[in-house]
Write a protein that binds this DNA or RNA. Structure first.
Lengths: 225, 225
DNA sequence: TCAAAAGTGTTAGATTTACACCCATGA
DNA sequence: TCATGGGTGTAAATCTAACACTTTTGA
């Protein structure tokens, strides 16, 4: 029972994170310049190698924690990428994950210290290796998830206005939404609760602040946006 | 430039296949008894290890070819599975793929030679390691794909009756479909073409045989079932 | 002649989309 | 007082879902 499968060749396994943030009505992701060979200087996702004592999910969590200091972040696997020559060095299989974070929770000095930047998803430059494809697939999965599950709130402050929420959905789907129809749908979801608080930062009149009540969102509740 | 990342530990990488077939109005998958330690004798998906000279997709294709003799099969990645102890031996990361095949294309002697069986998706026994979860995720992805893309035809003969097609969708979604509504929707899709041929095997009257015209299915054509 | 599967339309209800004006406030 | 973003309802169109009978033919 000691060494199984010993005749097979092993590979390095890494995780790469597509970290989404919503800021200034734009959907953005965190990318940086690669500071190691091969590919030094190229734009790249933030990633790391999987340790022998952690699962893939744990490796992704740890990687994100290292970059942002954030725990319990919403993350989902995008998939495994394993072209033979995807890494110019040796064989590396990479498992991509996407994360949704509230940019306000992310200390900007930490961001600078790691040399990563928020870049609009529609202005992603050429990327290292297959990272472009990872991003494309992450966006597709994330868009799909946003349509059918209440995960968009992960990208917003805990209190938000309906206009903010609408702008978020517009940024994700790349198309404008009718304000009245949007609000009508929101009203039908009891777990999106209006508070007594008013946000005066974006208009003179002020806009009501809403909150997503995770507890009130039960399995049978329907979500559609 | 010779050895990069040398301080990181490597892992074995395998692929596991969830092979869907449609037979006798039932959706089934191919599983067998594991014939190697660890886990000898337990029900298991068919899989194999990834070679250093092939991509993950190629490894999945090769594995399926070895089992079924089939090439150019519709396959999609389910995801990577990487719990630390998912394999009782050493560290193994597995990437699951699902495939859709027409059972008639699969030589039954080849099936028997490999010791695998068609088992209804609703009667899957306890499985080795995390294979149950792989199957569950494959089913979810496959169901989603079937709703929005014309891939169900991969599970049928090239000529099929509308009742067969309906039974397939019923098996995948686990619920009955109204015959008239179903046929109404089919009629709207020009790429599902009626032939002059009649199938007399399932009824005395005979049912018209249809064909999926892949070429006629263009990007802008809409598919919804 | 009858059992068994094939084939065919209509209607009510639900959902989706389009659309325009008043409100409250700070500058 | 006016410019700015916040907030609200209705009607037409489309889509979805429910529903039952006739046809063909081999046994």
């Amino acid at each position: 029972m000691t060494t199984f499968y010993s005749e097979f060749q092993k590979a390095l396994v890494s995780v790469d994170c597509i970290i989404f943030g919503f800021d200034n009505n734009k959907l953005k992701i965190l990318i940086g310049r690669r500071n190691m060979d091969p590919g030094r200087g190229e734009w790249s996702l933030y990633g790391g190698f999987v340790r022998s004592d952690e699962s893939l999910d744990e490796a992704a969590d740890r990687t994100l924690l290292g970059l942002t200091g954030l725990r319990n972040v919403f993350m989902r696997q995008v998939g495994a990428f394993g072209a033979v020559k995807r890494d110019p060095g040796e064989r590396v299989i990479s498992v991509a994950y996407y994360a949704l974070i509230n940019v306000k929770d992310y200390d900007d000095r930490l961001r600078q210290a790691h040399g990563v930047e928020w870049v609009e998803v529609d202005k992603i430059p050429e990327m290292y290796s297959d990272h472009q494809e990872m991003i494309a697939r992450a966006r597709k999965l994330m868009r799909q998830k946003m349509k059918t599950e209440p995960v968009g709130f992960e990208l917003l402050p805990s209190l938000f206005t309906l206009t903010q929420l609408q702008r978020l959905y517009e940024a994700v789907n790349g198309e404008e939404i009718d304000k009245r129809n949007f609000r009508k749908r929101i009203k039908e979801m009891d777990f999106i609760e209006k508070t007594e608080l008013i946000d005066k930062t974006t208009s003179k009149r002020g806009a009501a602040l809403y909150r997503f009540n995770k507890r009130a969102f039960t399995e049978d509740a329907k979500f559609k946006l």
